[in-house]
Design a protein around this nucleic acid. Structure first.
Lengths: 223, 223
DNA sequence: GTCTATAAATGGATAGAC
DNA sequence: GTCTATCCATTTATAGAC
Protein backbone atom coordinates (compact mmCIF):
# COMPACT_ATOMS: atom_id res chain seq x y z
CA UNK A 1 0.00 0.00 0.00
CA UNK A 2 2.94 2.29 0.55
CA UNK A 3 5.46 0.64 -1.71
CA UNK A 4 5.96 3.32 -4.30
CA UNK A 5 6.82 6.14 -2.01
CA UNK A 6 9.45 7.87 -4.06
CA UNK A 7 9.53 7.66 -7.83
CA UNK A 8 12.23 10.21 -8.44
CA UNK A 9 13.48 10.65 -4.92
CA UNK A 10 16.87 9.14 -5.69
CA UNK A 11 17.55 12.15 -7.89
CA UNK A 12 18.07 14.33 -4.84
CA UNK A 13 18.70 11.88 -2.03
CA UNK A 14 21.47 14.08 -0.65
CA UNK A 15 21.22 17.88 -0.40
CA UNK A 16 19.95 17.82 3.20
CA UNK A 17 16.47 16.49 2.39
CA UNK A 18 15.37 19.90 1.15
CA UNK A 19 12.84 18.82 -1.45
CA UNK A 20 11.00 15.51 -1.67
CA UNK A 21 9.55 14.74 -5.06
CA UNK A 22 6.85 12.15 -4.60
CA UNK A 23 3.99 10.36 -6.18
CA UNK A 24 0.81 12.45 -6.37
CA UNK A 25 -1.46 9.62 -5.22
CA UNK A 26 0.73 8.94 -2.21
CA UNK A 27 0.76 12.57 -1.22
CA UNK A 28 -3.00 12.84 -1.56
CA UNK A 29 -3.43 9.78 0.61
CA UNK A 30 -1.13 11.10 3.27
CA UNK A 31 -2.91 14.44 3.30
CA UNK A 32 -6.33 12.81 3.54
CA UNK A 33 -5.24 10.67 6.48
CA UNK A 34 -3.86 13.70 8.29
CA UNK A 35 -6.93 15.75 7.47
CA UNK A 36 -9.21 13.01 8.68
CA UNK A 37 -7.54 13.02 12.09
CA UNK A 38 -7.61 16.81 12.29
CA UNK A 39 -11.23 17.21 11.18
CA UNK A 40 -12.36 14.42 13.50
CA UNK A 41 -10.54 16.06 16.38
CA UNK A 42 -11.63 19.65 15.88
CA UNK A 43 -14.54 19.79 13.47
CA UNK A 44 -14.57 21.64 10.17
CA UNK A 45 -14.22 25.20 11.47
CA UNK A 46 -11.95 24.19 14.32
CA UNK A 47 -9.54 22.32 12.08
CA UNK A 48 -6.50 24.28 10.92
CA UNK A 49 -4.97 23.71 7.53
CA UNK A 50 -1.62 24.57 9.08
CA UNK A 51 -2.07 21.77 11.58
CA UNK A 52 -3.06 19.34 8.86
CA UNK A 53 0.13 20.25 7.03
CA UNK A 54 2.11 19.73 10.23
CA UNK A 55 0.74 16.18 10.47
CA UNK A 56 2.14 15.36 7.03
CA UNK A 57 5.58 15.50 5.52
CA UNK A 58 4.38 18.14 3.07
CA UNK A 59 3.35 21.76 3.43
CA UNK A 60 0.28 23.92 3.13
CA UNK A 61 0.70 24.91 -0.52
CA UNK A 62 0.87 21.23 -1.41
CA UNK A 63 -2.53 20.76 0.21
CA UNK A 64 -4.03 23.60 -1.78
CA UNK A 65 -2.36 22.30 -4.91
CA UNK A 66 -4.08 18.94 -4.51
CA UNK A 67 -7.41 19.93 -3.00
CA UNK A 68 -8.01 23.60 -3.90
CA UNK A 69 -9.78 24.49 -0.64
CA UNK A 70 -10.34 23.42 2.92
CA UNK A 71 -13.87 22.49 2.04
CA UNK A 72 -12.93 20.22 -0.86
CA UNK A 73 -10.41 18.51 1.35
CA UNK A 74 -13.08 17.91 3.95
CA UNK A 75 -15.38 16.42 1.33
CA UNK A 76 -12.60 14.10 0.18
CA UNK A 77 -12.12 12.96 3.77
CA UNK A 78 -15.82 12.22 4.11
CA UNK A 79 -15.85 10.19 0.93
CA UNK A 80 -13.00 7.94 1.96
CA UNK A 81 -14.53 7.55 5.42
CA UNK A 82 -17.81 6.31 3.99
CA UNK A 83 -15.96 4.04 1.61
CA UNK A 84 -14.48 2.23 4.61
CA UNK A 85 -17.88 1.58 6.14
CA UNK A 86 -19.25 0.44 2.81
CA UNK A 87 -16.52 -2.11 2.44
CA UNK A 88 -17.34 -3.75 5.76
CA UNK A 89 -21.02 -3.96 4.87
CA UNK A 90 -20.24 -5.59 1.54
CA UNK A 91 -17.96 -8.17 3.07
CA UNK A 92 -20.67 -9.52 5.33
CA UNK A 93 -21.32 -13.07 4.24
CA UNK A 94 -24.56 -14.18 5.81
CA UNK A 95 -25.80 -16.62 3.21
CA UNK A 96 -25.43 -19.96 4.96
CA UNK A 97 -26.89 -18.93 8.33
CA UNK A 98 -30.42 -19.13 9.74
CA UNK A 99 -32.08 -15.71 9.73
CA UNK A 100 -31.79 -15.07 13.46
CA UNK A 101 -28.13 -16.03 13.49
CA UNK A 102 -27.43 -13.89 10.46
CA UNK A 103 -29.17 -10.94 12.09
CA UNK A 104 -27.16 -11.37 15.26
CA UNK A 105 -24.00 -11.43 13.18
CA UNK A 106 -24.97 -8.27 11.32
CA UNK A 107 -25.69 -6.38 14.53
CA UNK A 108 -22.43 -7.53 16.09
CA UNK A 109 -20.40 -6.45 13.07
CA UNK A 110 -22.11 -3.07 13.10
CA UNK A 111 -21.50 -2.69 16.83
CA UNK A 112 -17.84 -3.58 16.47
CA UNK A 113 -17.28 -1.27 13.53
CA UNK A 114 -18.66 1.70 15.45
CA UNK A 115 -16.77 0.78 18.61
CA UNK A 116 -13.51 0.40 16.70
CA UNK A 117 -13.86 3.57 14.61
CA UNK A 118 -14.71 6.47 16.94
CA UNK A 119 -13.07 8.69 14.34
CA UNK A 120 -15.61 7.73 11.75
CA UNK A 121 -18.42 8.31 14.22
CA UNK A 122 -17.09 11.78 14.99
CA UNK A 123 -16.86 12.69 11.31
CA UNK A 124 -20.45 11.67 10.75
CA UNK A 125 -21.56 13.65 13.82
CA UNK A 126 -19.71 16.67 12.58
CA UNK A 127 -21.19 16.36 9.13
CA UNK A 128 -24.63 16.27 10.72
CA UNK A 129 -24.01 19.51 12.56
CA UNK A 130 -23.35 20.89 9.07
CA UNK A 131 -26.66 19.44 7.92
CA UNK A 132 -24.87 17.00 5.60
CA UNK A 133 -24.15 19.86 3.23
CA UNK A 134 -20.95 18.29 1.90
CA UNK A 135 -22.36 14.79 1.62
CA UNK A 136 -25.28 16.13 -0.37
CA UNK A 137 -22.90 17.76 -2.83
CA UNK A 138 -20.80 14.63 -3.20
CA UNK A 139 -21.34 12.24 -6.09
CA UNK A 140 -24.07 9.68 -5.43
CA UNK A 141 -22.88 8.58 -2.00
CA UNK A 142 -26.47 7.59 -1.52
CA UNK A 143 -26.92 4.70 -3.94
CA UNK A 144 -23.74 2.94 -2.98
CA UNK A 145 -24.40 3.15 0.74
CA UNK A 146 -28.03 2.15 0.72
CA UNK A 147 -27.05 -1.48 0.00
CA UNK A 148 -27.50 -2.47 3.66
CA UNK A 149 -31.18 -1.87 3.31
CA UNK A 150 -31.35 -4.60 0.68
CA UNK A 151 -29.47 -6.99 2.93
CA UNK A 152 -31.85 -6.27 5.81
CA UNK A 153 -34.90 -6.69 3.62
CA UNK A 154 -33.64 -10.10 2.53
CA UNK A 155 -32.96 -11.17 6.10
CA UNK A 156 -36.36 -10.04 7.27
CA UNK A 157 -38.09 -12.02 4.50
CA UNK A 158 -36.05 -15.11 5.29
CA UNK A 159 -36.88 -14.74 8.97
CA UNK A 160 -40.57 -14.55 8.22
CA UNK A 161 -40.36 -17.68 6.05
CA UNK A 162 -38.49 -19.47 8.84
CA UNK A 163 -41.22 -18.25 11.21
CA UNK A 164 -38.73 -16.70 13.63
CA UNK A 165 -39.43 -13.03 12.76
CA UNK A 166 -42.78 -11.32 12.66
CA UNK A 167 -43.80 -9.63 9.43
CA UNK A 168 -44.45 -5.97 8.73
CA UNK A 169 -41.05 -4.65 9.81
CA UNK A 170 -39.70 -1.87 7.63
CA UNK A 171 -36.02 -2.54 6.80
CA UNK A 172 -35.11 1.14 6.91
CA UNK A 173 -36.67 1.59 10.35
CA UNK A 174 -34.78 -1.48 11.50
CA UNK A 175 -31.53 -0.09 10.17
CA UNK A 176 -32.23 3.15 12.00
CA UNK A 177 -32.74 1.20 15.19
CA UNK A 178 -29.48 -0.73 14.83
CA UNK A 179 -27.53 2.40 13.88
CA UNK A 180 -28.95 4.33 16.80
CA UNK A 181 -27.91 1.71 19.30
CA UNK A 182 -24.41 1.31 17.84
CA UNK A 183 -23.71 4.95 17.10
CA UNK A 184 -24.97 6.84 20.11
CA UNK A 185 -22.90 5.04 22.72
CA UNK A 186 -19.80 6.09 20.80
CA UNK A 187 -20.84 9.56 19.64
CA UNK A 188 -22.19 10.68 23.01
CA UNK A 189 -19.79 8.93 25.33
CA UNK A 190 -18.25 12.18 26.50
CA UNK A 191 -21.38 13.93 27.75
CA UNK A 192 -22.44 10.57 29.11
CA UNK A 193 -19.23 10.31 31.09
CA UNK A 194 -19.56 13.87 32.38
CA UNK A 195 -23.15 13.45 33.52
CA UNK A 196 -23.40 9.85 34.66
CA UNK A 197 -19.80 9.15 35.50
CA UNK A 198 -19.74 5.96 33.50
CA UNK A 199 -17.04 5.25 30.95
CA UNK A 200 -18.90 3.61 28.09
CA UNK A 201 -15.64 2.40 26.60
CA UNK A 202 -14.62 0.39 29.65
CA UNK A 203 -14.37 -3.24 28.56
CA UNK A 204 -16.99 -4.54 30.98
CA UNK A 205 -19.59 -2.06 29.74
CA UNK A 206 -18.71 -2.62 26.10
CA UNK A 207 -19.41 -6.31 26.51
CA UNK A 208 -22.67 -5.76 28.38
CA UNK A 209 -23.92 -3.30 25.80
CA UNK A 210 -23.03 -5.55 22.90
CA UNK A 211 -25.17 -8.26 24.44
CA UNK A 212 -27.95 -5.79 25.24
CA UNK A 213 -28.14 -4.40 21.73
CA UNK A 214 -28.22 -7.78 20.03
CA UNK A 215 -30.87 -8.93 22.48
CA UNK A 216 -32.96 -5.80 21.95
CA UNK A 217 -32.96 -6.19 18.17
CA UNK A 218 -33.75 -9.89 18.23
CA UNK A 219 -36.53 -9.44 20.77
CA UNK A 220 -37.96 -6.69 18.62
CA UNK A 221 -38.10 -8.97 15.60
CA UNK A 222 -39.19 -12.16 17.33
CA UNK A 223 -42.42 -13.63 15.99
CA UNK B 1 -41.30 36.77 31.64
CA UNK B 2 -40.36 39.96 29.84
CA UNK B 3 -42.30 42.49 31.88
CA UNK B 4 -39.50 44.46 33.39
CA UNK B 5 -37.76 45.35 30.22
CA UNK B 6 -36.75 48.90 30.99
CA UNK B 7 -36.05 50.08 34.50
CA UNK B 8 -34.66 53.44 33.67
CA UNK B 9 -35.56 53.56 30.03
CA UNK B 10 -38.02 56.39 30.52
CA UNK B 11 -35.06 58.58 31.40
CA UNK B 12 -34.02 58.68 27.75
CA UNK B 13 -37.11 57.65 25.86
CA UNK B 14 -36.50 60.31 23.25
CA UNK B 15 -33.06 60.99 21.75
CA UNK B 16 -33.65 58.66 18.78
CA UNK B 17 -33.34 55.38 20.71
CA UNK B 18 -29.57 55.74 20.94
CA UNK B 19 -29.02 53.96 24.25
CA UNK B 20 -31.23 51.40 25.94
CA UNK B 21 -30.59 50.97 29.64
CA UNK B 22 -32.01 47.63 30.64
CA UNK B 23 -32.13 45.02 33.31
CA UNK B 24 -28.99 42.90 33.45
CA UNK B 25 -30.88 39.62 33.84
CA UNK B 26 -33.01 40.39 30.80
CA UNK B 27 -30.00 41.20 28.68
CA UNK B 28 -28.22 38.05 29.76
CA UNK B 29 -31.28 36.02 28.88
CA UNK B 30 -31.59 37.58 25.48
CA UNK B 31 -27.92 37.00 24.75
CA UNK B 32 -28.10 33.38 25.83
CA UNK B 33 -31.10 32.74 23.60
CA UNK B 34 -29.33 34.26 20.62
CA UNK B 35 -26.10 32.42 21.41
CA UNK B 36 -27.95 29.15 21.72
CA UNK B 37 -29.36 29.52 18.23
CA UNK B 38 -25.99 30.54 16.81
CA UNK B 39 -23.97 27.79 18.51
CA UNK B 40 -26.56 25.17 17.59
CA UNK B 41 -26.45 26.32 13.99
CA UNK B 42 -22.68 26.58 13.52
CA UNK B 43 -20.88 24.84 16.36
CA UNK B 44 -18.49 26.48 18.77
CA UNK B 45 -15.74 27.45 16.32
CA UNK B 46 -18.16 28.17 13.53
CA UNK B 47 -20.26 30.52 15.64
CA UNK B 48 -19.43 34.22 15.32
CA UNK B 49 -19.75 36.56 18.26
CA UNK B 50 -20.63 39.29 15.79
CA UNK B 51 -23.52 37.21 14.53
CA UNK B 52 -24.71 36.49 18.05
CA UNK B 53 -24.72 40.23 18.70
CA UNK B 54 -26.66 40.76 15.49
CA UNK B 55 -29.38 38.38 16.75
CA UNK B 56 -29.89 40.54 19.86
CA UNK B 57 -30.77 44.16 20.40
CA UNK B 58 -27.37 44.70 22.06
CA UNK B 59 -23.82 44.75 20.76
CA UNK B 60 -20.62 42.76 21.05
CA UNK B 61 -19.10 44.67 23.97
CA UNK B 62 -22.27 43.99 25.97
CA UNK B 63 -21.73 40.29 25.40
CA UNK B 64 -18.16 40.50 26.64
CA UNK B 65 -19.25 42.63 29.57
CA UNK B 66 -21.67 39.91 30.71
CA UNK B 67 -19.82 36.75 29.73
CA UNK B 68 -16.12 37.65 29.47
CA UNK B 69 -15.36 35.27 26.60
CA UNK B 70 -16.91 33.25 23.82
CA UNK B 71 -16.15 30.10 25.75
CA UNK B 72 -17.91 31.21 28.94
CA UNK B 73 -20.92 32.21 26.90
CA UNK B 74 -21.00 28.77 25.33
CA UNK B 75 -20.84 27.14 28.76
CA UNK B 76 -23.75 29.30 29.94
CA UNK B 77 -25.75 28.19 26.92
CA UNK B 78 -25.06 24.55 27.69
CA UNK B 79 -26.15 24.96 31.28
CA UNK B 80 -29.50 26.48 30.42
CA UNK B 81 -30.02 23.85 27.74
CA UNK B 82 -29.54 21.01 30.22
CA UNK B 83 -31.77 22.79 32.72
CA UNK B 84 -34.63 22.56 30.23
CA UNK B 85 -34.24 18.82 29.81
CA UNK B 86 -33.97 18.35 33.58
CA UNK B 87 -37.24 20.15 34.12
CA UNK B 88 -39.12 17.81 31.82
CA UNK B 89 -37.68 14.77 33.53
CA UNK B 90 -38.68 16.07 36.93
CA UNK B 91 -42.25 16.81 35.87
CA UNK B 92 -42.90 13.23 34.86
CA UNK B 93 -45.55 11.94 37.19
CA UNK B 94 -45.64 8.19 36.88
CA UNK B 95 -46.76 7.22 40.35
CA UNK B 96 -50.27 5.96 39.77
CA UNK B 97 -49.54 3.82 36.69
CA UNK B 98 -48.69 0.14 36.27
CA UNK B 99 -44.97 -0.30 35.53
CA UNK B 100 -45.36 -1.09 31.83
CA UNK B 101 -47.66 1.88 31.27
CA UNK B 102 -45.31 4.16 33.19
CA UNK B 103 -42.38 2.96 31.11
CA UNK B 104 -44.28 3.56 27.90
CA UNK B 105 -45.09 7.05 29.10
CA UNK B 106 -41.46 7.78 29.97
CA UNK B 107 -40.22 6.65 26.57
CA UNK B 108 -42.86 8.68 24.79
CA UNK B 109 -41.99 11.82 26.73
CA UNK B 110 -38.32 11.32 25.98
CA UNK B 111 -39.07 10.74 22.30
CA UNK B 112 -41.20 13.86 22.09
CA UNK B 113 -38.69 16.03 23.88
CA UNK B 114 -35.93 15.06 21.45
CA UNK B 115 -38.20 15.43 18.44
CA UNK B 116 -39.37 18.86 19.57
CA UNK B 117 -35.93 20.19 20.51
CA UNK B 118 -33.54 19.54 17.62
CA UNK B 119 -31.60 22.54 18.88
CA UNK B 120 -30.89 20.84 22.15
CA UNK B 121 -29.84 17.70 20.32
CA UNK B 122 -27.43 19.67 18.17
CA UNK B 123 -25.86 21.37 21.17
CA UNK B 124 -25.26 18.04 22.85
CA UNK B 125 -23.76 16.62 19.65
CA UNK B 126 -21.49 19.61 19.35
CA UNK B 127 -20.40 19.34 22.95
CA UNK B 128 -19.51 15.72 22.31
CA UNK B 129 -17.28 16.64 19.42
CA UNK B 130 -15.50 18.80 22.00
CA UNK B 131 -15.25 15.80 24.29
CA UNK B 132 -17.60 17.43 26.82
CA UNK B 133 -14.80 19.72 27.88
CA UNK B 134 -17.14 22.54 28.89
CA UNK B 135 -19.66 20.33 30.62
CA UNK B 136 -16.87 18.80 32.67
CA UNK B 137 -15.78 22.23 33.83
CA UNK B 138 -19.31 23.29 34.71
CA UNK B 139 -20.60 23.06 38.28
CA UNK B 140 -21.95 19.61 39.13
CA UNK B 141 -24.17 19.21 36.11
CA UNK B 142 -23.78 15.53 36.81
CA UNK B 143 -25.63 15.05 40.08
CA UNK B 144 -28.64 17.04 39.05
CA UNK B 145 -29.06 15.28 35.73
CA UNK B 146 -28.55 11.74 36.94
CA UNK B 147 -32.01 11.76 38.55
CA UNK B 148 -33.54 9.85 35.62
CA UNK B 149 -31.50 6.85 36.59
CA UNK B 150 -33.28 6.73 39.95
CA UNK B 151 -36.66 6.93 38.25
CA UNK B 152 -35.75 4.08 35.90
CA UNK B 153 -34.43 1.96 38.75
CA UNK B 154 -37.73 2.42 40.61
CA UNK B 155 -39.76 1.51 37.52
CA UNK B 156 -37.68 -1.59 36.86
CA UNK B 157 -38.16 -2.80 40.44
CA UNK B 158 -41.89 -2.18 40.28
CA UNK B 159 -42.07 -4.04 36.98
CA UNK B 160 -40.30 -7.04 38.45
CA UNK B 161 -42.69 -7.07 41.43
CA UNK B 162 -45.62 -6.87 39.05
CA UNK B 163 -44.02 -9.73 37.07
CA UNK B 164 -44.15 -7.82 33.79
CA UNK B 165 -40.42 -7.06 33.52
CA UNK B 166 -37.58 -9.50 33.82
CA UNK B 167 -34.94 -8.82 36.45
CA UNK B 168 -31.25 -8.06 36.02
CA UNK B 169 -31.64 -4.98 33.81
CA UNK B 170 -29.17 -2.20 34.58
CA UNK B 171 -31.01 1.15 34.72
CA UNK B 172 -28.10 3.03 33.19
CA UNK B 173 -27.87 0.64 30.25
CA UNK B 174 -31.61 1.01 29.79
CA UNK B 175 -31.34 4.78 29.80
CA UNK B 176 -28.59 4.53 27.21
CA UNK B 177 -30.85 2.42 25.06
CA UNK B 178 -33.76 4.87 25.28
CA UNK B 179 -31.50 7.86 24.67
CA UNK B 180 -29.89 6.22 21.68
CA UNK B 181 -33.21 5.52 20.03
CA UNK B 182 -34.59 9.01 20.71
CA UNK B 183 -31.44 10.99 20.00
CA UNK B 184 -29.95 9.43 16.91
CA UNK B 185 -32.95 9.87 14.65
CA UNK B 186 -32.78 13.59 15.35
CA UNK B 187 -29.01 14.10 15.51
CA UNK B 188 -28.26 12.11 12.35
CA UNK B 189 -31.29 12.97 10.29
CA UNK B 190 -29.23 14.94 7.77
CA UNK B 191 -26.74 12.25 6.77
CA UNK B 192 -29.64 9.84 6.86
CA UNK B 193 -31.55 11.98 4.43
CA UNK B 194 -28.54 12.33 2.13
CA UNK B 195 -27.80 8.61 2.05
CA UNK B 196 -31.17 6.92 2.25
CA UNK B 197 -33.38 9.66 0.90
CA UNK B 198 -35.83 9.40 3.77
CA UNK B 199 -36.92 12.44 5.73
CA UNK B 200 -37.00 11.22 9.32
CA UNK B 201 -39.03 14.26 10.33
CA UNK B 202 -41.89 13.55 7.97
CA UNK B 203 -45.00 13.03 10.11
CA UNK B 204 -45.69 9.49 8.92
CA UNK B 205 -42.19 8.35 9.83
CA UNK B 206 -42.20 10.17 13.16
CA UNK B 207 -45.31 8.29 14.17
CA UNK B 208 -43.98 4.93 13.01
CA UNK B 209 -40.71 5.41 14.84
CA UNK B 210 -42.40 6.48 18.02
CA UNK B 211 -44.35 3.23 18.01
CA UNK B 212 -41.25 1.23 17.09
CA UNK B 213 -39.13 2.65 19.89
CA UNK B 214 -41.74 2.13 22.59
CA UNK B 215 -42.29 -1.39 21.33
CA UNK B 216 -38.56 -2.14 21.25
CA UNK B 217 -38.04 -1.00 24.83
CA UNK B 218 -41.07 -2.85 26.20
CA UNK B 219 -40.15 -6.03 24.34
CA UNK B 220 -36.64 -5.78 25.70
CA UNK B 221 -37.96 -5.58 29.28
CA UNK B 222 -40.79 -8.10 29.00
CA UNK B 223 -40.53 -10.99 31.46
C1' DG C 1 5.02 18.95 -7.38
C1' DT C 2 7.01 21.21 -3.61
C1' DC C 3 8.93 24.92 -1.10
C1' DT C 4 9.47 30.10 1.38
C1' DA C 5 7.26 34.09 2.11
C1' DT C 6 3.34 36.93 2.25
C1' DA C 7 -1.08 38.83 0.97
C1' DA C 8 -5.95 39.49 2.38
C1' DA C 9 -9.47 38.83 5.31
C1' DT C 10 -11.62 37.45 9.33
C1' DG C 11 -12.94 37.48 13.97
C1' DG C 12 -12.08 37.53 19.20
C1' DA C 13 -11.47 40.96 22.27
C1' DT C 14 -11.06 45.85 24.29
C1' DA C 15 -10.45 51.19 24.88
C1' DG C 16 -12.90 54.88 26.07
C1' DA C 17 -17.03 57.87 25.72
C1' DC C 18 -21.59 58.26 27.72
C1' DG D 1 -24.56 48.85 31.35
C1' DT D 2 -24.23 50.05 26.68
C1' DC D 3 -22.33 52.10 22.61
C1' DT D 4 -18.65 53.38 18.48
C1' DA D 5 -14.44 52.45 16.81
C1' DT D 6 -10.46 49.79 16.56
C1' DC D 7 -6.59 46.66 17.80
C1' DC D 8 -4.19 42.62 16.82
C1' DA D 9 -3.71 37.61 16.45
C1' DT D 10 -5.07 34.10 13.61
C1' DT D 11 -5.97 31.78 9.41
C1' DT D 12 -7.33 30.82 4.58
C1' DA D 13 -5.21 31.15 0.49
C1' DT D 14 -1.63 32.36 -3.15
C1' DA D 15 2.64 34.39 -5.60
C1' DG D 16 6.74 33.01 -7.33
C1' DA D 17 11.19 30.50 -7.01
C1' DC D 18 13.03 25.86 -7.89
Amino acid sequence: MDDRVAKGAAAKANAGETRRVRDAETTRGEIIAAARAEFAAKGFSGARVDDIAARTRTTKPAIYYHFHSKEELYTAVLETAYAGMREVEQNLNLDGLPAAEAMRRLVEVSFDYHADHPDWVRLVSIENTHEARHLAGSASIGERNAAVIGVLRGLLERGVREEVFRSGIDPMDLHLMISSLCFHRVSNRHTWGAIFGRDLQAPEHVGAQRVMIVEAVLRYLRA
